[in-house]
Design a protein around this nucleic acid. Structure first.
Ligand code: FES
Ligand code: FES
Lengths: 143, 143
DNA sequence: TCTTGAATATGATTTTTATCATATTTTATT
DNA sequence: AATAAAATATGATAAAAATCATATTCAAGA
């Protein structure tokens, strides 16, 4: 469904949203441990996210990663798109290509509605939305 | 979502259901071309499926693959389980482990219903069910 | 029973994904 | 300006998934 890398990235972004800010940046080594992802690995993922402006960063002493207000408004799918590419969640369930709506495969009619719902949630839910759920105690960050 | 291998396997099974029978077995080379999967690759997948009794086979001249009546009644998920293993569709969307229902991740509440629907369809729909849809012209086999 | 046509078992190779390592660049602090 | 602390760029290695190759086994038909 999602690659390991995407899962890691989502965890990291949410962790930052909850624990960092422009005036309290967090370094990779303080991210990797609580989210349980190897440091060098999450560092690389974060770099990709910074490049696409999904997260913010600053180097040098007092540097680190954080999310600014615009970062918080990104939909979760944008994280997945950066890490996994656009087509991962989009390909036909029976072939490697995307759905052919005129000639749907036998799984399409059965499953496409559910899949569309998932896509839709990932598109509409922002980092801020998920953070709110965690703050309300309705959801938890898995390690 | 599903691995390439699972998709290939599902295509092959459906192809057999539509084009083979105990008295009209089909050889790998006559399966691989129409479903557009390399021969040696689909051969290996079919061998796994035979071992788990998802498809039937016979060797020697006049041999080949086919589906008998019990094969036709297998749910699609059993194909996926043989090829991808049980946990592929089951892991938590944010971590590598399966859902923790008591402490759901922030994506869980949002997405688990849709995911459960998908699982449910794969569990309830049999090979025979999908074949029927194809025969009715409601669905098509992708190459 | 010999030959031939098929699946099967086994394993090698290639590609992709995941993971690790490090030299370079930037910036706050002294 | 010099130092040190951080991200960044880049690339190496390891593991897993996908793909390819082939020798072996089994069964039908001559
Ligand atoms: S055509 Fe296969 S899932 Fe849409
Ligand atoms: S999907 Fe994460 S806890 Fe269920």
């Amino acid at each position: 469904m999602l690659s390991n890398s995407s899962k890691y990235a989502i965890k990291a972004v949410l962790f930052l949203a909850l624990n960092a800010s422009e005036k309290k940046k967090v370094m990779v080594k303080d991210i990797s441990e609580p989210i349980n992802v190897p440091q060098a690995y999450i560092a690389k993922l974060l770099q990709s996210l910074v490049k696409e402006k999904i997260v913010s960063s600053a180097r040098g002493p007092k540097g680190g990663f954080y999310l600014d207000e615009t970062n918080m408004d990104h939909p979760i799918i944008s994280i997945v798109n950066v890490i996994d590419g656009e087509k991962r969640l989009n390909s036909c369930l029976m072939s490697l290509k995307k759905c052919n709506e005129e000639k749907p495969c036998p799984l399409h009619n059965e499953l496409s509605a559910s899949r569309a719902q998932i896509l839709n949630s990932l598109r509409s839910k922002t980092v801020k939305d998920l953070v709110k759920e965690v703050k309300l105690g309705n959801a938890f960050l898995p390690i």
